[in-house]
Design a protein around this nucleic acid. Sequence first.
DNA 1: ACCTAAGCGAGACGGTACGTCCCGTCTTCTG
DNA 2: CAGAAGACGGGACGTACCGTCTCGCTTAGGT
Lengths: 184, 184, 184, 184
Amino acid sequence: MAGRPRSIEADAAILEATLEEYKHCGYGGLCVDAVAARAGVSKATIYRRYASKLDLVMASTVAAVPDATSQPDTGSLRGDLIQRLHALRDLLHGTGRVMRRLVSERGDYAELDAAHAQFVAERRAATASLIERAIARGEIAADVDVAFVSDLLAGPLFYRFLVHDDVVDDTYIERVVDAALGAV
Amino acid sequence: MAGRPRSIEADAAILEATLEEYKHCGYGGLCVDAVAARAGVSKATIYRRYASKLDLVMASTVAAVPDATSQPDTGSLRGDLIQRLHALRDLLHGTGRVMRRLVSERGDYAELDAAHAQFVAERRAATASLIERAIARGEIAADVDVAFVSDLLAGPLFYRFLVHDDVVDDTYIERVVDAALGAV
Amino acid sequence: MAGRPRSIEADAAILEATLEEYKHCGYGGLCVDAVAARAGVSKATIYRRYASKLDLVMASTVAAVPDATSQPDTGSLRGDLIQRLHALRDLLHGTGRVMRRLVSERGDYAELDAAHAQFVAERRAATASLIERAIARGEIAADVDVAFVSDLLAGPLFYRFLVHDDVVDDTYIERVVDAALGAV
Amino acid sequence: MAGRPRSIEADAAILEATLEEYKHCGYGGLCVDAVAARAGVSKATIYRRYASKLDLVMASTVAAVPDATSQPDTGSLRGDLIQRLHALRDLLHGTGRVMRRLVSERGDYAELDAAHAQFVAERRAATASLIERAIARGEIAADVDVAFVSDLLAGPLFYRFLVHDDVVDDTYIERVVDAALGAV
DNA sequence: ACCTAAGCGAGACGGTACGTCCCGTCTTCTG
DNA sequence: CAGAAGACGGGACGTACCGTCTCGCTTAGGT
C-alpha cells in the first residue's frame, strides 16, 4: 500500500539548507545536524533520503543543475562547436563538485566507472556526430582525427574547471574552437 | 641538550603511509590513526612532525610531486614545450591517484585550496617563463596570451588523464604543441 | 456515525505479539514497530488502543495473568492455602519469562512501578482474606502477622522459580504450607 | 607496551555520576550524555570502560556494594543462620538491580547462566555446611532436607526484595530463621 | 661512564559529528 | 470511518576520528 508520501517541502528545504551550509562551511565543515536545523527537519528525514553526508551534498548540487537540452544545427561546424562548448561549460559549472567526485573516484567503484564511461561515451559521440556532419558538408577533411579534436576542445575547459576552478567566458570558448579548427 | 634525534625511517614511513591512505580514501576519509598504524609509528610521532592532518597530507603530496626541476633550454619554443609536456605527462603518470584526489577535492576543504593554488601558480609561472623566453627570441608575438596557450597545452593532457585515465604518447604531445603553436 | 468497528483479531494479535516481544527483549528493548510487524498490524492501530508503549505492555501483561479467580472455600485454612499456592505455581509456570521480566525490571522504569505495586497488592489482599476467614473460624490467633505468613508461603515458590528456574511439585507446596502454619 | 593508564578520577567520577543520574531518572530515563557531562568526562571515556548503558549502570551498582566477608562460627545453628541471612540481606540490598538483572536473564545468555549457577551453588554450599555443622553438633536431625530449609530461609528474603523491593529488618530475619527451624 | 634532554610506541582523553534507532504523531490511500 | 503503510520531529544511542596528553622505555650527546 501507499503510506504517507514524502514531504515535498522537506525535499526542497533540505536541498536548500544543504547548499547554504555548504557555501558557508565547505564539505569538511558541513554538519548534518546544522542542515537539519536550518531546514526545520529532523536528521532522520534527511537520512531517509540520502545515505550519507556525501550523498546529500552531491544530490543538492545535482539538483541545482538545469537539464542539458538537445542542440539545434547552427549550420556551421564552428557554430555547432561553440554551442557545444557552451553546454559543456554550463554542465561543469552546474554540477561542480559532482563532476569532480566522478573524476576522483574513477577506479574506486565499479558501478560508478560504468556510469562514468557511458556518460563520457555519449558526449563524445555527440561531438563526433557534429564533426561528421561537417565532413558531410565538406567543411573539413574526411580523415580528421575526431578524438584528438575533441580533446583540444574539451581539454581546456575541463582543465580550467578542475584545476583552476574557473568558469570561462564566451570569448574564451570561441578562441578554443578556433584553435581546434586551426589544427585541422 | 641535544636529546635523541628524530627517526629518519619514521619520516619516510609516515610520508609513504600517508600517500597510500590518501590514494584509497581521499582527504576526508583519511584517518591519522590508520596512517600511524600503516607506518608502524605512533600518532605522537606524526604530530611531532606535522601540526595537523592537513599539514601531513600536504607535505606528503608535495614530497610525492618532484620539483619542476629546471629544464634545459632546447633552443626552440617547440622543443621547450614538448619537453615540458613530457614532464607533465610523467608527473601525472607518476602521481596517479594522488593527483586525481587533489584535483577532485578542490573546494571541499578550504584549507587545502590555498596550497593547491600555490602549487598550480608555480607550475604556470615556469611555463610562462618558457614563453617569455620565446618572445625574447622573437619566435612569437609579444602580445601572446600566455595563460591561454598554457590551457591549450595542459588541457588535453589533464583531460585525457582525469577523464579517460589515459597516458598519452610522444606523438600526441607533439600534436598538442603544434596545435597550440598554430593558434598564436 | 458508527463507522467501521475495531478488529477483534487485531486486539488479540497485538496482545500476543507484545507478550512475545516482551519475553525476548524486556521493556527497554521492546520496540513498538516490532510488535506491530509481528502482529501484522499498523502502529496506528496499536496507538488507537493504547496511549503509550507502557500502556501496551501493562495491558498485555495483565491479560496474560489470569484474574485470581475467586477460590472455593475448602473449609480449612490449610486446604485454602494449598489451593492458593497451587494457583501461584500455575501462574508462575504459565507466565514464565513474562513474570521474570516483570520482576527484574522493578525500579528501572518508574512508570511500570505503580502498575506492579497495584498488581501485587491485589494478590496479597486475596491471601489476606483467606487468613482472616481462618481467624473468623478460630483456626488461628487473631493477631497473626498476615504479611509475614504470606512471605513464608509465596517466598519459597518465587525463589525456586526465579533463582532456580524450578517448578515445584504438590508435595513441596504442602510442606511449605505446613512450615508456614507451624510458625504461627 | 603500556600506554597512558586510565584515569582513576574518571573511573570514580563516572560511577558516581551514574548513580546520581540513576537516582533522579531511573534506568529508562538515564542518558549517557548527561552522565558524561556530570562526570566531566567525554562519552568515549565512558564507552571505553563499559560496552553499553546497561553495563555502565550495572557496574556502578556493583561498585557500590561492599564485599561479603567470611563468616565466623557463632556456636549455634540459629546464630549462624541469622548471620547468614544478614549477609544475604546486605548482598541483595547492595547489588539491587544487578541481582534483578541476573534473575531476569536466566536462559538468555549461556555465559551468564553458568556464572549464575555457580554463584547460587556456592551460596547454597555455604548454607549447607552450616547445617551439617549443626548436625555434627547434634542440634538437628541428620536427615533434614537441606535444600528445603534453604528455600525457607532464602525464599522470603528474595521474595520481599524482588517482588516488594523491601529491605527487611533484623527482627524479620530472626522470625524467618525461627520459622525455618520450627519446620525441622 | 654517567646523565639528561628528547624521541618513541602505546593508548587514554575531551570534543564533535556521524549515522542509527525508536517513540508517538501525522498523513495518505484502501476496504 | 478503521486500518495498513510509512513519513515525520525529537532525542538518545554507540562509533569514529582529531589533536592532546601521559606513561615508561630507548637513544644519543655532553660532561
